[in-house]
Amino acid sequence: MDVYYFYSYGTAAWLATQAVPLIASPTMIVALLSPEVREASALEIYFSRVLGFSLITIGILNVLLTGSVPLSSRLSEASGVSTSAEDPKAPYALPTMTITSAFHATYSFYMYTMWTTSGSYAFGLGLLGSGFLSIVALWCILFASSNGRISRKTGADKRTSGFPFKNSEAASEKKKAKKGI
Rank of each mutant, 00 (worst) to 15 (best):
114 M>P: 01
143 F>G: 05
61 L>T: 07
166 K>S: 15
109 F>T: 01
14 W>M: 15
155 G>H: 04
89 K>L: 14
176 K>V: 05
34 S>D: 13
66 T>F: 06
180 G>M: 02
59 G>T: 03
19 A>G: 01
16 A>G: 10
166 K>N: 13
89 K>P: 09
28 M>F: 13
98 T>G: 11
60 I>P: 01
2 D>Y: 07
9 Y>Q: 08
62 N>G: 08
23 I>A: 02
161 S>I: 06
117 T>K: 04
114 M>S: 10
70 P>F: 00
21 P>T: 01
177 A>C: 10
116 T>G: 09
142 L>C: 07
147 N>Y: 04
94 L>Q: 09
114 M>I: 05
44 E>Q: 05
112 Y>C: 07
137 A>S: 14
96 T>N: 04
121 Y>C: 14
43 L>I: 08
53 F>C: 08
39 E>R: 06
152 R>D: 15
151 S>H: 02
103 F>Q: 03
138 L>G: 05
92 Y>V: 04
132 F>L: 13
85 A>T: 11
94 L>S: 03
99 I>S: 05
77 E>N: 13
62 N>E: 08
43 L>H: 09
178 K>N: 08
51 L>E: 07
35 P>K: 13
142 L>R: 08
161 S>M: 15
134 S>D: 00
140 C>T: 05
50 V>Y: 02
68 S>A: 15
134 S>R: 01
31 A>N: 09
158 K>Q: 12
42 A>E: 08
95 P>W: 06
42 A>N: 11
75 L>H: 07
101 S>A: 11
137 A>E: 02
69 V>Q: 12
95 P>M: 09
138 L>C: 05
41 S>E: 12
14 W>I: 15
81 V>C: 11
